[in-house]
Nucleic acid binder design. Sequence first.
DNA 1: AAAGCATATTCCTGTCAATGCATATTATTG
DNA 2: CAATAATATGCATTGACAGGAATATGCTTT
Lengths: 100, 100
Amino acid sequence: MEIFTAIADPVRRDILALLRRGETAAGTLVDTLALPQPNVSKHLKALREAGLVTIRIDGPRRLYSLDPGPLAELDAWLAPYREFWASRLDALGDHLDRTD
Amino acid sequence: MEIFTAIADPVRRDILALLRRGETAAGTLVDTLALPQPNVSKHLKALREAGLVTIRIDGPRRLYSLDPGPLAELDAWLAPYREFWASRLDALGDHLDRTD
DNA sequence: AAAGCATATTCCTGTCAATGCATATTATTG
DNA sequence: CAATAATATGCATTGACAGGAATATGCTTT
C-alpha cells in the first residue's frame, strides 16, 4: 500500500500516533484502540507494506516500531506547497485589491 | 471529502501540482492531464469539497486556484513525526549496538 | 505432545470511490 | 433564439478496501 493511501485511514493514523511513544506490542495496540484483534492486525499489515512500521519479533509477540521514512517522503511532497500558505495572506490582499 | 482522502488519489495530486503554477481553467487542466473532461471535473469537485481549491468564474470558464489551508493541516499533523526522522540514524546506531 | 496465548490469515459482505459514457447546465456568439 | 463552447452532473459498472467471524500459525509452558 502506498503512503498516501496508508495514512488516509483514521485507525492507521491512530496506530502511528501510538507508536510515537515507542516500540509497542500488537496486543497493546489492540487493547489501547479497543478494536478487534484481526482488524488491528490487518491495519498493521498495511502499515508494514507502506514501510511505515517495522516488526521486531520477541517470542510470540510482534513489537512494532514507527519507521518515519515514508513520512519524510510525505514531508518532501508537501514542501513545494509551503510557500503557498506562507503567502496566503498576501494573495488574499491582492485578491481584495482586484475585486473592488 | 477529507484532506487525507483527497490527496490519496494520484490524479488529484497531479491537479494540485499543476495549480502551483497559478490559477488555471478547468479546460487547461483537462488538456494537460489528457484525461476525460468529466473525470477531471469530478476530481475538481472533490478538491473543492476538501477545501483544497477555490473557483473563480470567468464567463463560461471556471478558474481554479490552490487553497493551501488544508495542506497546512497536513503539515501540522506531520509535525510530531518530524523529530523521528531527525533521530533516525541515531536510532539505527542504537539498534546496531543492541543487536550485536 | 498437549494446551494456551499472541498474532496473522482467510472468507465473506457491505460500502465507497474511480471511471466511462451520456446528458444537462450555463454562457457566449451570431 | 439557435448554435456552440466550457463545464458539471447522472447513471452504471468495476475495483479497492474496511469490518466481522472463524480459523490458522507459531511460540511457550507443562
